Simulated assay, not measured.
Amino acid sequence: MSNGGCGVGGGGGGGGGIATRTRVGKYELGRTLGEGSFAKVKYARNVQTGDNVAIKILDKQHVLRHKTVEQIKRETSTMKLIKHPNVVQIHEVIASKTKIYIVLELVDGGELFDKIVNHGKLKEDEARRYFQQLINAVDYCHSRGVYHRDLKPENLILDSFGVLKVSDFGLSAFAPQIREDGLLHTTCGTPNYVAPEVLNDKGY
């Protein structure tokens, strides 16, 4: 993790008041894109290049209190290994005294989960297209010895062109974690989506 210059930088303003925008290193933070129990994701702009990104913001105290340091290290190191058009790209990780900022590719089409909830079941052609992209991403990850272990519509993000991107590698595993029987044995994942063999602890 690099220590970025994190602080409030002045923005442009007009009239009587001066607008200020929070700056994290070379990134100017904007609106909140999403908020979970452990993190907030904000829109941001690289002031040097003008590129738009998403920044996942984690509170260090919250991370330490919930003992998720290893999970975050695993997520960021895994994402750095994966360079694929159907996986959300990580640009860098910046740490301040109180926060961890994970700078990610901006994917602005929302979750596949929300698309299904709002529009009902997908047409077969559309479902096939998403499934092909998902399989391409999973195949690539497995070829790099990375196993996501929490694939679900909430972790599949769509861009504005309908390209599917896999996100959230917090529960991923590396090939060295596989036992001699060729299987993983850590019980993890989201209960509603987890396979029976994971719950039965028979290896998967």
Results as ranks from 00 to 15, higher is better:
residue 169 F to E: 06
residue 43 Y to D: 15
residue 110 G to Q: 08
residue 57 I to F: 03
residue 39 A to M: 02
residue 20 T to I: 12
residue 50 G to P: 06
residue 80 K to W: 00
residue 170 G to V: 09
residue 37 S to T: 15
residue 55 I to T: 06
residue 142 H to P: 10
residue 127 A to W: 02
residue 76 T to F: 06
residue 128 R to H: 02
residue 122 L to G: 01
residue 143 S to A: 11
residue 96 S to W: 03
residue 129 R to M: 14
residue 120 G to H: 11
residue 190 T to W: 10
residue 176 P to S: 04
residue 131 F to C: 13
residue 44 A to S: 03
residue 95 A to R: 08
residue 110 G to I: 09
residue 154 E to I: 01
residue 196 P to V: 06
residue 129 R to D: 15
residue 64 L to S: 05
residue 42 K to C: 14
residue 83 K to Q: 15
residue 202 K to E: 13
residue 44 A to N: 00
residue 120 G to D: 07
residue 171 L to F: 15
residue 85 P to Y: 10
residue 201 D to I: 00
residue 24 V to A: 11
residue 19 A to K: 13
residue 129 R to N: 12
residue 90 I to Y: 01
residue 149 R to K: 02
residue 68 T to S: 07
residue 127 A to D: 03
residue 33 L to F: 07
residue 101 Y to R: 02
residue 98 T to A: 11
residue 33 L to C: 10
residue 171 L to P: 01
residue 22 T to G: 03
residue 94 I to H: 07
residue 158 L to G: 07
residue 86 N to K: 06
residue 19 A to Y: 08
residue 159 D to R: 09
residue 201 D to M: 08
residue 89 Q to E: 11
residue 86 N to L: 10
residue 35 E to M: 04
residue 157 I to M: 12
residue 56 K to R: 13
residue 25 G to Q: 05
residue 152 K to A: 05
residue 190 T to N: 06
residue 46 N to F: 08
residue 160 S to I: 08
residue 150 D to K: 03
residue 198 V to E: 02
residue 166 V to H: 00
residue 126 E to I: 13
residue 116 I to G: 06
residue 18 I to A: 13
residue 54 A to P: 05
residue 189 G to E: 00
residue 183 L to A: 11
residue 160 S to D: 08
residue 8 V to W: 14
residue 154 E to K: 00
residue 120 G to F: 07
residue 118 N to T: 10
residue 6 C to F: 11
residue 109 G to R: 09
residue 131 F to L: 08
residue 203 G to D: 02
residue 115 K to C: 02
residue 151 L to W: 02
residue 165 K to V: 14
residue 175 A to L: 15
residue 191 P to C: 09
residue 83 K to A: 13
